[in-house]
């Protein structure tokens, strides 16, 4: 028995480096830390099927939702760093640790446990109001909000969620006070705006494009550095003079930090080619979420800047009671 065990252990030792060179030699799992149907899903699944053609191994996506994404992110951060468990994360990856700091909580994961592989998309959020509301421009909105502080209500995907942080970032820059009504996800938030239960919403472009085109919602401004391609007439907050108001719902691929370099390189290479895959491009176009690819080093820089900006925003929001 003991001999068999030690023989197996030996086999394992010999097998490990060999496996690294032939990466990948078995199926790869993408973890999407949100429920099915969300952005991580919509980006992760087509990305997986584009990358599996290049890596010649099946890629499966597993939804592991919980605690605003913290469960799935922590699961990958603590998984075996062999390149077979990867994470499809959104911007909230940088918000959760900041919120944990605010409450002096033991964080479920830290950002330095994860190594970025590729940024796939980065959609600026867009501020929408009902089409029959009196505000035609951001200026109208801000003037009205200054007249009656704390009266205009906006919906968010949840407290300290992406949509909450984006809106507060703008409110701080414009020096206005808004009333926050959190909902349990982006879908319910859009529904609340359409039902006139709140008056404004920051949302990713995908979920509201059809409503904007049908004339039920009116976009006021975008949070991006540039205008949103699908909404060329909508100005950015930067154009309007709100300098530091920049927010993206981005989606990127991550691996645990200690993943061996050969695996990381193979994944970077595959992601680089996958974003040129015509089928993948069509799918992302369909979602109203154009590809903004960045390779690992540039992605790391982008992530650092973004995380710093979000950290400031979360600190300004402070504890909500």
């Amino acid at each position: 028995m003991l001999r068999t065990l030690s023989a197996l252990a030996l086999l394992g030792l010999v097998a490990a480096p060999a496996a690294a060179q032939t990466y990948p030699d078995r199926p790869i799992t993408f973890v999407a830390p949100f429920p099915p149907g969300g952005v991580a899903d919509q980006v992760g699944r087509p990305l997986g099927s584009a990358m599996e053609k290049l890596l010649k191994q099946p890629i499966v996506l597993r939804n592991q939702p919980g605690a605003g994404g913290a469960v799935g992110m922590a699961a990958v951060a603590q998984s075996r760093p062999d390149g077979y468990t990867l994470l499809v994360a959104l911007s909230s990856i940088s918000i959760i640790p900041e919120a944990d700091k605010l409450f002096a909580r033991q964080p479920a994961y830290t950002m330095d446990q994860l190594a970025p592989i590729a940024l796939i998309s980065a959609d600026p959020t867009v501020m929408v109001v009902k089409a029959d509301s009196p505000w035609k421009t951001v200026k109208d909105f801000v003037e009205d909000a200054k007249k009656r502080p704390g009266q205009i209500a906006y919906a968010s995907s949840g407290v300290y969620g992406t949509l909450h942080v984006a809106m507060e970032m703008f409110a701080v820059a414009a020096d206005i006070k808004l009333r926050h009504v959190p909902f349990s996800g982006g879908g319910p938030a859009v529904t609340a705006l359409l039902g006139n239960n709140v008056q404004a919403l920051a949302s990713g472009p995908g979920p509201v494009l059809a409503q904007i085109k049908a004339g039920t919602l009116r976009p006021l401004a975008g949070w991006g550095d540039k205008r949103i391609p699908a909404l060329p007439d909508v100005p950015t907050f930067k154009e309007l003079g709100y300098k530091d108001v920049e927010f993206y719902i981005w989606a990127g691929l991550f691996a645990p930090k200690a993943t061996p370099a050969p695996a990381i390189n193979a994944l970077r290479e595959a992601a680089k080619k996958a974003v040129d895959d015509p089928e993948f491009k069509t799918t992302m176009g369909n979602l109203g979420s154009p590809i903004s690819y960045l390779d690992a080093p540039e992605f790391q820089k982008f992530w650092d800047t973004d995380a710093a900006r979000l950290a400031v925003a979360v600190k300004k929001i402070g504890k909500v009671e």
């Binding site: 899903d41 059809a210 049908a214 369909n286």
Partner: peptide
């Protein structure tokens, strides 16, 4: 709706 959007149909009032 997510399934529809992946196929290029974005559900809206129209």
């Amino acid at each position: 709706m997510a399934a529809l959007m992946i196929h290029g149909v974005s559900p809206g009032p129209l």
